[in-house]
Design a binder for these strands. Structure first.
Lengths: 262, 262
DNA sequence: GCTCGTATGTTTGTTGACATTAGGATCGTC
DNA sequence: GACGATCCTAATGTCAACAAACATACGAGC
């Protein structure tokens, strides 16, 4: 429950262009939604490590639900490519390799560049810069604390907010899945959970490029951002990193304790 | 079974870079995969029209399966945004409106432009041009026959092949869903099922731009292609179109007759 | 000593039934 | 005559049990 306060992944209302809704946008979530959210959160937090095989009976008992809804939720994550299923072998969290990392960052580049272009085209620069600056300030503070987990959270949150700014439900949904995969890359390929000292600067470049309203320059900055991140994950040894003091390593199997009621 | 020979949607092996596999890449599909494929096909073919509410008991009986696997398959399509589910209201095919059309084409632009850039970057131009030319020749023949359905099929197949050429599983999966939504747009917003006489020319431009290896020009062509298609769908009345003689209108409810064995 | 076949165990895949809930229709009242 | 409340029906949401299939381990045969 340490970092479940901000919830960057798949908010209840992904686009805020539908502000003219009455009062309640049907807040009650389906049980399958809740289970799928919990599974995503568990993958995101590293509770379910990459490549781990999952017994659905055990998972269902931990979540306090039956196997039926659990299987339905699992099919959603299979569709998202966060889980894999093989006949009679059961479910497993996707395992990350170099090709997968490259593909994830290829998808991220496509989605985030498209979102940036929408932000410039639809004149959403001011609001986007304000939102991203707030996230960036939290990133700076987390970086000063040498809190690797918080830096990673703000990194994910930054890119989710960047795409959400475009107001496109499809782009937002795509980036949510891709960011969970990114986080999974971090857990499985960057185990030291190092804090890169230049991460705030790298994101400040993006904010500045958006504020400058120069589309080619912005796209170049975003592309370079992605290429460097992908290269950093595929080339594990790095020098200009700072190891985190208490990195909150992937806990073995935190029981998910699904409330299903609140 | 008229147009199930080409199967542009989600082939069994989306990337052919894994050619070095032993002999059998585990061809057997899961039952949920089969059901999900049938549902996608039904939406793609217009058997399940946009906005139609679906009773899962009736669907399960038509497919010859129980409600459990059907519900699991439906959750996959919900994740793909092809179906929607509301509590105690059941499933429904997504309904298309102008905002959705715009979002679909925004996503398509992002994915297809990214795929084009990969094709140029990884020097896949020759093979891609050959593949697309074959599809384009079929499109030309279908256009000469005034076969609106076949033209639409080759259109979808063209763009799927374009993205598949990049060899990215994520881009291919994304475009598959977006193309089904595109087809749904055609069914719900362009009911006349008109054959645009200039459609082959429009796609020839894309092939030529790929062959020219000029990235900015190629991206501009693709973007214009998408913008015109989106504009055409949102502005229903058009003049330079040719109505199809026997347009094979959306059949009311062709029983899906799932074999599950072949 | 190695390999193949068999038996067992654990898992998934599927099915049917039960409970819950929302929608609609009917009846009563104002 | 119209509005509202209540009952009924039909659908979904959930769960437990059955069966099939794969993987593993053990033993026999070469």
């Amino acid at each position: 429950m340490a970092n479940s306060s901000h919830r960057p992944i798949r908010p209840a209302t992904p686009l805020r262009s539908a502000r003219a809704q009455k009062i309640t946008p049907v807040p009650r979530e389906s049980t399958v939604d809740l289970i799928a959210g919990r599974l995503r959160q568990a993958i995101f937090e590293g509770t379910l490590p990459a490549g781990a095989p999952l017994g659905e009976a055990e998972l269902a008992e931990q979540l306090g639900v039956s196997r039926g809804p659990l299987r339905e939720a699992a099919q959603r994550l299979v569709q998202e490519r966060l889980l894999t299923t093989t006949r009679r072998r059961g479910l497993a969290v996707i395992s990350m390799d170099a090709a997968t990392v490259a593909d994830v960052y290829l998808g991220r580049t496509a989605v985030e560049c498209a979102a940036c272009r929408v932000v410039l085209r639809d004149n959403l620069v001011d609001r986007t810069v304000r939102t991203l600056t707030r996230v960036h300030q939290r990133m700076v503070r987390a970086n000063k604390r040498r809190d690797a987990h918080a830096v990673g959270d703000t990194d994910i949150e930054f890119h989710q907010a960047l795409v959400d700014a475009a107001g496109s439900p499809r782009l937002s949904a795509s980036i949510a899945t891709l960011l969970i995969e990114t986080r999974l890359c971090t857990y499985s390929l960057d185990r030291q959970f190092r804090v890169r000292a230049d991460m705030p600067d790298s994101h400040a470049e993006i904010i500045d490029a958006i504020a400058a309203r120069d589309e080619p320059a912005l796209l170049a900055v975003v592309e370079r951002h992605m290429a460097e991140a992908a290269r950093r994950l595929t080339a594990p040894t790095e020098v200009d990193t700072i190891s985190s003091p208490a990195p909150a390593a992937p806990r073995p199997l935190d029981p998910l304790e699904l409330p299903l009621d609140d």
